[in-house]
């Protein structure tokens, strides 16, 4: 039996970009992909939704997924409780981000661009952010995103079935990273002796797999297959930052876009010494635990470590 394939992500850690790529790859590979969300993120924990059903109890997660027959699940608001509730063989990857950049990114997103439909806690937070200065708003964001930062701190980074990645590395080398992910999941087709008929067959099966998701009675066309390199890399190419951000290069900011800037270390341009002191007091040891600094003596002028996860 194939394991459940999983992506464990977090709010403001490129999760929309990653799950969009996974969803497109899965559609072509004939794998049923679903996204699983805790609507209370990043401020609390509650029942989950996959947008097919609401109020999925966390303790019942494994049974629910098994019943549904999902092949690949993107837990875009992950925490260890979800991993423990799976209670089935799985293989997955987990993407984190410098928590200081999460705060800055979340501040702009929550204030300007993130949809608030069916998210009353976020709508209320937006009103608060709009009524205060940026300095005050960043303090408020540190409190609002508290549950997410605690989840990052509580994560088991040694799990043998989870590939640990940093968003900074994944966005810097997206092609290499997705190849690495699919190799870890053992989901990539080995193409050494790929004949022309295999290539044509893969194209036709990919076409039928995509059609099979369009209507229930076309399901019979579906034949799950391991995606080839061009299927995986083509979807990464389709979702490259420059295209998503409407032609802007990485590093150029648009405060109102969901794909605002895409550059690591941007927190230095927004956090003040007072923010840093508050962050360290509220989340002691978090930055160094996640490997973004060697210890907790970091300040505005120190240099963050290069993300050490590479393909």
């Amino acid at each position: 039996m194939d394991p459940l394939y999983t992506y464990f992500g977090h709010h403001k850690c490129a999760s929309s970009w990653i799950w969009a790529i996974l969803a497109q790859i899965c559609r072509e590979a004939g794998l049923v992909h679903k996204i699983m969300v805790d609507p209370l993120t990043p401020t609390g924990h509650g029942p989950l939704t996959d947008y097919m059903a609401d109020q999925i109890p966390r303790h019942d997660l494994g049974r629910y997924l098994e019943q549904r027959g999902y092949d690949f699940v993107s837990f875009v608001t992950a925490d260890m409780e979800m991993v423990e509730a799976l209670r089935m063989p799985f293989k997955g990857f987990h993407v984190i981000r410098d928590p200081r950049d999460i705060i800055v990114s979340a501040y702009f997103s929550h204030r300007n661009s993130h949809p608030t439909d069916n998210l009353p806690h976020l709508a209320a937070h937006r009103e608060r952010l709009k009524s205060v200065s940026k300095e005050e708003g960043l303090f408020l964001e540190m409190e609002f995103s508290g549950q997410e930062l605690r989840d990052l701190g509580d994560w088991n980074y040694q799990h043998p079935d989870i590939l640990e990645l940093k968003m900074e590395e994944v966005t810097r080398h997206p092609y290499e990273s997705f190849v690495r992910i699919f190799e870890f999941l053992d989901l990539l087709r080995w193409e050494s002796d790929f004949l022309a008929k295999d290539r044509v067959q893969t194209f036709l099966q990919g076409l039928m797999n995509r059609l099979s998701f369009r209507a229930p009675h076309w399901q019979r066309l579906r034949r799950p297959m391991r995606p080839t390199g061009d299927i995986v890399l083509g979807r990464v190419y389709d979702n490259r930052f420059e295209k998503k951000a409407g032609g802007r290069a990485k590093g150029k900011a648009d405060a109102k876009s969901h794909y605002r800037k895409g550059k690591a270390g941007d927190w230095r341009n927004h956090l003040t010494p007072a923010h840093i002191a508050h962050f360290k007091e509220t989340y002691p040891g978090l930055v160094s635990t996640l490997g973004y600094e060697t210890d907790e003596s970091w300040e505005l002028e120190t240099h963050a470590l290069e993300a050490d996860v590479g393909p």
């Binding site: 092609y175 190849v179 050494s192 080839t228 390199g229 061009d230 995986v232 890399l233 083509g234 190419y237």
Partner: peptide, 16 residues
């Protein structure tokens, strides 16, 4: 096509 080129680079990458 960009997708085809990426697929070729992948197929012929060093590890293979």
């Amino acid at each position: 096509r960009a997708e085809k080129l990426l697929g070729i680079v992948h197929k012929l990458r060093f590890s293979k």
